[in-house]
Computed example of a mutant assay.
Amino acid sequence: MTPPHGPRVLCAGLVTLDIIQTVDQLPRSNVKQRALGLSVDFGGPAASACGVAAGLGAAEARLLTAIGHGPVAEAVKTYLRRAGVVAVDLAGREVEEAFGASTVLVEQDSGDRAVVSTNAADVPLLLDAVEIGQADVVLLDGHRMELCLAVARAARAAGKPVVLDGGSWKPGTAELLRLVDVAVVSEDFVAPDESLAALMRRCGVYAFGQSLGHRSWTLDVAGQRHVIDVVEVPSGEMVDTVGAGDVLHGALAFAIGQWGLDRVVDACRFASEKASDSCRGMGARGWLAGPSGRKEPGLTF
């Protein structure tokens, strides 16, 4: 039964600290230039998707991840809390700064971007604390694979739909796919030695597709193909494309949690619309109105 105030969404995977600067044009080497704007917020596929689900009205948006301790880690937790995300930090008490970090430059007129990232610290996680609670849907990003596998197994045992944000192929992906109901992967996702369709069918994924940025794409549902159109954002309304893929997956999980797997095509079309909407604001959540009715994308200067 769908909760009265939106679905309960559980996400598992990566959180980062993102520093986003807007510039006139992306810099060449050995050039120093002044930024037009600065935004500091949390990022990461699972974390951003969780923030989007919260912004869309999820009854609960819970994130299983590793953050750690220390002043910067506490800032990440603050940003998550401000976005309505309930963060469960599975890093041990002795771990500092288990999250990753990204520096993002966004070209003001085009919305084009350049991203430099560090991977999250490879730390042991407290997997005994993993539980899915009353979640209506689970979203995984494939980072921290051991965690994603544990959450997927728990979700499968509880009969909850599992959605995968497949940003790229990682060790353990094939095993994870056997526990996934819906997989929407990026253009960078390349399976070794077989086509995407062959891989997904071999692993028993119910619905799968490969998003193509601003181009329409196809969702395969139990062998039937459905076109997912992408709404083009006029150049005059484009702010940036940062996090659009995370918006797609957060909105997709929200919609599946609300409507169920029977409406997965509708859910993908809803998610595609929200991903386009997000390009009109800064970052993955700059387009979302906060509780006060104003947009609250972390700290913006």
Rank of each mutant, 00 (worst) to 15 (best):
G100A: 15
L164K: 10
Q33S: 09
G172F: 06
L196F: 14
G223K: 07
D24N: 14
M1P: 10
P27C: 04
P234A: 12
D188E: 15
G260I: 07
K32Y: 00
E94A: 13
L17F: 12
R82V: 13
F189T: 10
V180G: 01
G204M: 02
G213R: 01
A58D: 05
A275F: 03
A58L: 12
R113Q: 14
R34I: 08
A101R: 10
V231C: 06
G51I: 06
L10V: 04
A284V: 01
L199G: 11
N119K: 08
T218A: 03
A53I: 02
V76C: 13
P4S: 12
E273T: 13
P124C: 00
E60S: 15
A66C: 06
S278E: 11
L56C: 07
G298F: 08
G172P: 11
P71S: 04
R144K: 11
A101N: 03
T218Y: 02
L105T: 01
L125K: 05
D24M: 07
T300Y: 02
V104D: 03
G281Q: 11
A135S: 15
E187A: 14
S168C: 05
I132G: 08
G223H: 01
L126H: 14
C50H: 09
A61I: 09
V185H: 02
A152P: 13
D141F: 09
S39E: 10
S168V: 12
P192D: 13
V190K: 12
A120D: 10
H249C: 03
D188G: 04
D266F: 03
S168W: 02
D41P: 01
G37W: 08
A158H: 03
D136L: 01
R113H: 05
H5D: 14
V162Y: 12
G213D: 07
P234E: 11
V88N: 01
E237G: 06
F189M: 11
R215S: 11
T78Y: 08
G6T: 12
G133P: 06
V86G: 02
V72K: 05
G236T: 09
G298H: 12
G84I: 05
L17W: 10
V233N: 02
A284G: 08
R82G: 10
T22P: 00
A197K: 06
V137E: 07
G236C: 10
S276R: 09
G142P: 12
V239H: 11
G293D: 10
R294Y: 15
R93K: 04
H214E: 15
H5A: 14
S29E: 05
V205L: 07
D136N: 15
S39G: 03
E194D: 12
D136G: 14
K32C: 05
S186I: 08
R156P: 13
V137I: 03
I228H: 00
T65S: 12
V15S: 04
V106T: 09
G166H: 09
M282W: 13
L80F: 02
P7L: 00
V115I: 15
A53T: 11
S272E: 05
C50M: 07
R34Q: 14
G57F: 14
A255K: 07
S102G: 06
S211Y: 09
D165T: 13
E296P: 01
F42Y: 14
L105H: 02
R113V: 04
V247A: 13
A73Y: 02
L212G: 00
L105V: 00
G70S: 08
G245C: 12
T65H: 00
D240A: 03
T78S: 14
T173M: 15
A244W: 00
R178V: 06
S211M: 08
